[in-house]
Each structure stands twice: as C-alpha cells, then as structure tokens.
C-alpha cells in the first residue's frame, strides 16, 4: 500500500517536472517566436503604393495574397523579383494578388528599381517600419502566403526559384 503511494507520488512529481521542461523546450523550438504564425490571421495593414493608391490587406479577402518584403540592396530580392513579376502576370487572372512591401527606402530608389524591372504589381513603402514590426520581419527577402480567408499559409525566408514562386502562387489560388 505504502509502496503504491510512493510510486504514485513519484510519478506525479516526475510528470510535473516533465511538463515544465517540456513546455519550455516546446515553446522555444516548436512554436514560431514570430508574432505571425502559420494558420493565424495575417495582421491587417494599410499602405500606399507608388501610384498613390491605398491598399488594405483585409480588402483582399477572397483572393490569395503573395506578400513580399524586400529592399533594393538585397541581392536575393533582386533575383526573385522578375520571377514574381512573370508568375504574377499568369496568376493575376486566377485571383492571386502580389503586394510588395519595401522596407522603408526612399521613393526615388524604389521607383528606379520598379522601372528597371518593369514590375506590374503594387509596390509600397513601409516608411515607419510598422508593417515590418507587425510581421516581425528581420531578414530579407521574406514572403508570406495568405489564403482567401486572410490566414497565413506559409512563411518563406530566403530566395525562391521561379518554380517555387509558381507553386506558392498555385497554393493560394482561391
């Protein structure tokens, strides 16, 4: 009887300790520390594109949104921009929108960049880093795939090949 009690006691204590350790390890390694998680609703934002048109993310419900953060100095961004541009021309008709958020550079640099690559999707400048903070972006490029319900489907950091861009756009087609 006493032995049994002891076993129960030990099991309970060990389980408690395991739970504490497990939680710490889990929350550190298996959850994204970023504020924006896969499956959660993408934080809403409002930005004005180069032509002066306001874009609000929540207005794009019903469409897939390919949200790309970039900078003119970021070579991988430069590399993937033409891919995105090309695929956009196909997927635009299928309800996929690209929103390219520049991380607070000068309008001049951004405009020159857009002209150089002939980008056809809306490009906006996050002047005060508010959107960057909201999405916890620290390394460029960063891409968020948002489905028609406004939920984040995938977060991609690093360069994409054209094939990847195509697949990703395909995956968020409404």
């Amino acid at each position: 009887m006493k032995k049994q009690q002891r076993l129960v006691m030990r099991t309970v204590i060990l389980l408690l300790l395991l739970a504490a350790v497990g939680y710490t390890i889990y929350s550190n390694f298996f959850t994204e520390k970023a504020r924006v998680k896969v499956g959660s609703t993408a934080p809403d934002f409002v930005l004005t594109d180069l032509s002066g048109k306001q874009h609000r993310l929540s207005d794009y419900r019903g469409k897939g949104v390919f949200l790309n953060f970039w900078g003119t100095w970021c070579k991988p961004c430069e590399k993937e921009m033409p891919y995105i541009n090309r695929q956009y021309s196909t997927y635009k008709k299928q309800g996929v929108e690209v929103l390219a958020v520049n991380v607070g550079e000068t309008k001049l640099s951004v405009q020159k960049f857009v002209d150089r690559f002939g980008l056809t999707f809306p490009v906006m400048i996050d002047r005060e880093d508010q959107v960057m903070n909201a999405y916890d972006v620290d390394r460029l490029p960063a891409t968020f795939l948002i489905d028609k319900n406004g939920k984040v489907k995938k977060i991609i950091t690093g360069t994409m090949t054209e094939e990847m861009v195509k697949q990703y756009m395909e995956s968020i087609k409404p």
Partner: peptide, 22 residues
Amino acid sequence: ELLSYFPDFYFDEDGNPSTKSK
C-alpha cells in the same frame, strides 16, 4: 535630375555601384 541614389554606396561583385543598406 537625380538618376540614381545609393545611400550606402559600394561597388558590388560585378563592379556596379550599389547600396549596402538603406
């Protein structure tokens, strides 16, 4: 006219004027 602006200027691997950051 300002044709190009490089806030943090350097020559990249290909020898083109470029910027390191904003």
